[in-house]
Design a protein around this nucleic acid. Structure first.
Lengths: 261, 261
DNA sequence: GAGTGCACCTTGTCTAGACGAGTAGATGGG
DNA sequence: CCCATCTACTCGTCTAGACAAGGTGCACTC
């Protein structure tokens, strides 16, 4: 076991930088240099109190900085650990290509199986409701919509929470309004209903999660969410679906192709 | 002036929820309901200590939660304020269309002027350097590259920091290696050099900023960054540029079009 | 009237403790 | 051998102070 002083050094009392920031800096650097590896336990609060000769609140303050940066996470009764980087899900720009819809299962399941993960979908809720101002605008002034909510999990970890909104005149009474939309998902059903899909528009934002999102996605502190709003257009130019998705940012890389013309 | 009790209510001593979380909940709800508006000052720590009958550290703990969520920001000597939502810059999926390159100025300047903002570009640095592993892979195993670094500001606020990497055999000795790449930017120069652009690939991640990024972009706490890596391909299928961009997430909405075929 | 400096507001940093609660390993009894 | 319990270690919450330092406005001085 390497001793603390050999890893962490001491404080500079002449520095303007606050003590708790200096401690955070040293821990951060040690992590960056690989002195503490992913998943590894950092020194306990008591050890750092001893090492630096400061009070416990000061050490905790340092930890809270690193937590805010998403570098570490604390586990009650166990310790503070370097946060491991979870495997990421890559969303390719051709993920809605028609050929991917020909199979039986949903895109999420197929792709995750291929990547060797154990996918799951839960929290399924399908109901009619009043459209929000934003959804109404995107769908072209509809008052009520069919909302399909579901949560996606990979290897037991929730990674994404999505809600699809569809105009009632399209979705009501169809298989889209059933819990299981059938092979190929709702996009396949929309095309069977005569709404040949033309293109999608996606809007992407990133921000810190609300408490509700933290709960639903079991997010560690210091993990932002990606907020993606996709609108599907049919060949008639009509917006036929709006899908509002909240993703755990540490689990995703989004990928797009842009034309140069 | 509305009195505190009428806005904030009291604590529930029977609740399992920690006191500082209850206080944060009440402040968050008051902000969400618009009882405290954007830019407005929250009650001071001393006032909340008085109102809730708790110690100051407990109140500060509550504030630090809201700060982590990006809801408020503290100003030393002044108070804690509801963080205003800055105007966002929308990046459209056609932003690299050739027609946008025909004008004299850079895309950033043109677009910002049109939006009525005061754009600025600084921190310009152009130099040759060793390619990182990642950049080398993306550009097809090049060892050294030309790196162009610059920071973009809107109305005095830094919003984006970008570095372009180009293979030396393309860029060396050309206007691309000059501080000012000329009208239409480096993409116009690449096409003049015979590298007709075919398409771009963009990879998007979101995460909390490093301390260096916080400094460069003057980020408030609770604001994530969007990390965008764009690769430009010419019609020969060669990767001719990699652009690595860090954006203040609260200043951007990215927009893309996806084909349905 | 202009400017300086003080008073008092604000948040920032830090201490030294207390008790609670979750975890894990050692200990000992059945 | 298995299981319950004890104990020591971990982080979580909270208190009651102290001093530092930035911001603002008022009062006093010149």
């Amino acid at each position: 076991m390497t001793s603390l002083p050999s890893i962490l050094g001491g404080l500079d009392p002449t520095s303007d930088r606050a003590v708790f920031r200096q401690i955070a800096d040293q821990l951060r650097e040690a992590i960056d240099r690989g002195r503490f590896k992913e998943g590894e336990k950092l020194p306990s609060e008591a050890e750092l109190v001893e090492h630096y000769g400061v009070s416990r609140m000061t050490v905790r303050n340092s930890f809270s900085i690193l937590q805010g940066e998403g570098l570490v996470h604390a586990e009650h009764g166990k310790g503070v650990f370097v946060r491991p980087r979870p495997p990421v899900r890559r969303l390719a720009s051709d993920r809605f290509a028609r050929r991917h819809r020909e199979q039986g299962k949903s895109a999420f399941i197929v792709e995750a199986d291929a990547a060797g993960s154990h996918p799951k979908v839960d929290s399924l809720e399908v109901k009619e409701e009043k459209a929000s101002q934003d959804v109404s605008t995107r769908l072209g002034s509809v008052r009520r919509v069919l909302a399909r909510r579901r949560r996606y999990l990979l290897d037991g970890r929730p990674v994404e929470f999505a809600t699809s909104y569809l105009p009632l005149d399209i979705a009501r009474g169809t298989q889209i309004a059933e819990p299981n939309p059938g092979p190929g998902g709702i996009y396949a059903r929309l095309e069977e209903l005569g709404h040949q899909l033309d293109h999608f528009e996606e809007e992407i934002r990133a921000r810190m999660p609300s408490p509700a999102e933290v709960k639903t996605l079991q997010l560690a502190s210091g993990v932002p969410v990606i907020h993606l709003i996709r609108t599907a257009f049919d060949t008639a130019g009509r917006a036929v679906e709006v899908c509002d998705t909240i993703m755990a940012a540490d689990a995703y890389v989004l990928s797009y192709q842009l034309p140069a013309t």
